[in-house]
Design a protein around this nucleic acid. Structure first.
Lengths: 169, 169
DNA sequence: CCAAAAGTGTTTTAAATACACCCATGC
DNA sequence: GCATGGGTGTATTTAAAACACTTTTGG
């Protein structure tokens, strides 16, 4: 299965396991790689914590992290693939609980909102956004809070751990 | 390019040219075909008129037309692929002018609405639907009408011939 | 004049937007 | 007591939904 192959490849190159994984698109333009006619089924993986990626093995030794809005020039048509991934992620944020794959088990509402704002690339109205999200019912409020240098923040987690699509009628 | 291959294959098996074509998903489960491990990049083609399909050549000689809601049991995982196609088409109907690929150049509003109702699988309120579509601006009203046994119907065509996505903000 | 499909407005309801101040804590 | 981020409510605007009759033509 392609999913399994992608998962295996991801694990070999990053050490990641149990990652959210989604097929994006299959690219088959003969000119995308000048050396050979390569057909690539592109996948997107989502993780909550970049530091979970192990020091790269010999394969892909020069992998690095970039802000998605500031990707460098990539080889072949990989910029296109990255753009496609971001587009897919944006649209799924709006009608699913996919953000679960990008956040730790517990998080504050501010962290949740920051994630959305970052990926959607626009500022969000704090009150309206909170109202909308809570009305969706994708989050549940936990009984404990996170204490910090300021007012403690309520902690949330996702109501469903598995990917769900929200009906908005 | 995969698109070209799909187009070529479609032409060979149906005689169709200039068809709307869209990649759906790539299926790679080793068990989908018991004889061999086949990876298939599935494509969806849309045409306005079933009769444009030429009498099948030797290849795919037993091709037939079915109502999408009444597909028979298909070989391998082809039912899954068909379901995927319908799902994609449904969602694109809502925020693009993709219906252009399914209608002749000129059509009545009733035909347009019937298409939507059929694909979306639910009845539509005539007045609300008309208001919404005209507000989108994807159609233009033509100066002439279609005369029939009853009151003549205004004819419409698409404002843009090429695929456009509608911003609904 | 009748059958059949085409066309048209208003009211109600719900959702989205805009917007600014008070709260709880650590230091 | 003050700096910092956490948290809350209302009024306005806009869009969606519900709903039934009149119009135009051919036969």
């Amino acid at each position: 299965m392609l999913d399994d192959a992608a998962r295996r490849e991801l694990h070999e190159s990053t050490g990641l396991r149990g990652t959210y994984l989604e097929q994006l698109f299959t690219f088959g333009d003969p000119s995308r790689d000048p050396r050979a006619h390569v057909v690539s089924a592109a996948y997107m993986a989502l993780i909550p914590d970049a530091s979970a990626v192990k020091a790269p093995c010999d394969k892909y030794a020069n992998g690095r992290w970039y802000e998605v809005t500031r990707l460098p020039e990539l080889a072949y048509d990989h910029s296109l693939i990255a753009a496609y991934a971001l587009k897919r992620l944006k649209s799924k944020l709006e009608y699913s609980n996919i953000a679960n794959a990008l956040l730790p088990r517990e998080f504050t509402f501010a962290e949740f909102e920051e994630l959305y704002s970052l990926i959607l690339g626009r500022p969000l109205d704090r009150r309206n956004f909170r109202r909308r999200i809570l009305a969706m019912g994708i989050l549940k409020c936990l009984p404990h809070t996170r204490r910090g240098p300021h007012r403690p923040a309520a902690l949330y987690s996702f109501a469903n751990q598995s990917l769900r699509f929200i009906e908005m009628l």
